[in-house]
Write a protein that binds this DNA or RNA. Structure first.
Length: 202
DNA sequence: CTCTTGATCTTCT
DNA sequence: GAAGATCAAGAGC
């Protein structure tokens, strides 16, 4: 650590970069493995603390009824970003998994902010950090991710992913905000984190 | 604390 | 024309 490190400049050291190949396996393996990894966009981001898995055989997935203009990135190769508009207001970001044609992806639902807190607060208009990234629409606003970034690679700028450096305790439960296949336990999160969009039931 | 509601717009039927 | 992988604010307790 340089002696010149300023107060407030306490972002944790990053693990090794994750390449696109990380995503070339079952979405149900990738999703829990992403918990504790660090997502950065233009250097702003944090620890992934909550995700959900979606697969084309899952009625809740956008890809369930086949390719469309909106979901075409999901049908492409793994390691790319699928961004969609939610409720006409928010953006939500997904990481494509498995292989071309699988149309599976992990929805990123919450981050623990670690990098670029000032930029996040500015974009979100908030002082506290608890609510900066504790939901899929909140974190895209905090990081500045929009439709323009649909289809970009996850291991090339402005995106960067870094492996977790410690083991983590992963909780799972039913997914949030869906009406189809609402009983499937494909939501994963960092157990006990205060940055979740919603706690996992005990 | 929980519950309800409005905002706002793209996508697909 | 309806539904939707959400959020924030307001009412009520």
């Amino acid at each position: 650590m340089p002696a010149s490190t300023k107060k407030g400049d306490h972002a944790p050291a990053l693990g090794k970069p994750l390449k696109r190949g990380f995503f070339a396996r079952s979405v149900h393996e990738v999703a829990p493995d992403l918990i504790g990894a660090t997502l950065l966009f233009d250097g702003v981001g944090g620890l992934i603390v909550e995700v959900e898995a979606y697969h084309h055989t899952d009625p809740a997935a956008h890809s369930y009824n086949g390719p469309t203009a909106r979901n075409r990135v999901m049908f492409g190769p793994p390691g790319y970003v699928y961004v969609y508009r939610s409720y006409g207001i928010h953006w939500c970001v997904n990481f494509v998994c498995e292989q071309e044609g699988s149309a599976s992806a992990v929805l990123i639902r919450a981050l623990e902010p670690t990098h670029g807190l000032a930029a996040m607060r500015r974009r979100r208009g908030l002082a506290g950090e608890r609510a900066l990234c504790s939901g899929p629409g909140k974190l895209t606003e905090a990081l500045g991710i929009t439709r323009e970034h649909n289809g970009l690679a996850l291991d090339l700028p402005p995106f960067a992913l870094h492996a977790r450096k410690t083991t983590v305790d992963v909780a799972s439960g039913v997914r949030i905000g869906i009406t189809k296949a609402a009983d499937l336990p494909w939501r994963y999160g960092l157990k006990g984190s205060k940055f979740l969009s919603k706690p996992f039931p005990a």
